Amino acid sequence: MTEEEVTAFGVRARRVRSDRETLVVEVRGDLDILAATRLSPQLEHFAQEPYPCLVLDLRPVSFMDCSGLSLLVRVRRHVVARDGELTLVIDRPFFRRVLRLAGLSGVFVIRDSVGDALGRRGRADSGAGAAGDAGTACEASSA
């Protein structure tokens, strides 16, 4: 196992893509208390890398409990502390609802696909984003 990938209790986080502006990390499996504890150091490491934009692709996540939500909040805190931007890729209505009920849907930028996350970032919402979304430094640099 390298620093690029960590597997714990059936969940995996791995670097999928990076360029000079954006790091895309895919998280796969059940993001529960056991996995969140083991993945926390790696995801926090990814969050502290010098990329202005971190995209977490959570589409392959099959389960997430409050420990998984807490981990996402910690990762966001690290990214924001270095003036970066975190985007979550979530295509399941159930997970979007969990974020909304936890009061977190307005905290995260949420997109339906990695392509959408790379093309339109910068506004925290629970939808895929409208065509008129305001751009950010990350969007400008990826255009």
Rank of each mutant, 00 (worst) to 15 (best):
D57N: 14
L34I: 11
L39C: 10
M64N: 02
V89S: 10
R76G: 00
L23T: 03
R74K: 15
H45C: 09
G84R: 08
I90Y: 04
L23W: 02
V27Q: 01
V75A: 05
R74C: 02
P41D: 05
S40H: 11
L69Q: 02
L39V: 11
L88M: 12
L34E: 12
H45W: 15
V75H: 06
V89K: 09
V27F: 02
Q48I: 08
L72E: 06
P52A: 11
P41G: 07
S67E: 08
G68I: 12
P52I: 12
V24K: 05
H78I: 10
T22Q: 02
L43T: 02
Q42M: 13
M64R: 04
L86T: 01
A47R: 00
G29C: 01
A35P: 02
A35C: 06
T22M: 03
M64K: 05
T22P: 00
C66G: 11
A36F: 04
V55T: 06
A47S: 07
Y51R: 06
L31N: 10
A36N: 07
I33T: 15
L86C: 04
R82V: 09
D83I: 00
L31R: 08
P41T: 02
L56E: 04
E49I: 06
F46E: 08
L54A: 08
R82M: 08
L86Y: 01
L31P: 05
L43C: 04
E44I: 10
S70V: 03
V61L: 11
L86P: 03
A81W: 02
R38S: 14
L34S: 13
A81V: 03
L71A: 02
T37C: 08
T87P: 10
L54C: 07
R28Q: 14
L23N: 01
R82I: 10
L39G: 04
V75I: 12
L58R: 05
D57W: 06
P60A: 01
L71E: 00
E85F: 14
L39Q: 12
P50R: 10
G84T: 09
D57T: 05
R59V: 15
R82A: 10
Y51N: 09
G29N: 02
D30N: 12
P60Q: 00
L72T: 10
V80I: 09
V27K: 03
A35K: 00
R76M: 06
T87L: 03
L39A: 12
R38K: 14
L58V: 12
R59H: 08
E26F: 10
A81P: 01
S70Y: 07
D30G: 08
I90P: 01
R59L: 11
L56M: 09
P52T: 11
F46D: 05
I33M: 14
L86I: 00
L31D: 07
A47V: 00
V24E: 07
V73H: 08
V24F: 08
V27D: 05
H45K: 15
V27R: 01
V25A: 12
V73E: 06
R38Q: 14
L39S: 10
I90H: 05
V80S: 10
L58I: 12
V73D: 07
Y51I: 03
L23D: 01
T87Y: 04
C53Q: 13
V75C: 06
L56P: 03
S62C: 06
L43E: 02
A47E: 02
D30A: 14
E85I: 09
E49L: 15
H45A: 15
R28D: 15
L69G: 01
V61Y: 06
T22N: 04
P41F: 05
F46G: 05
H45D: 15
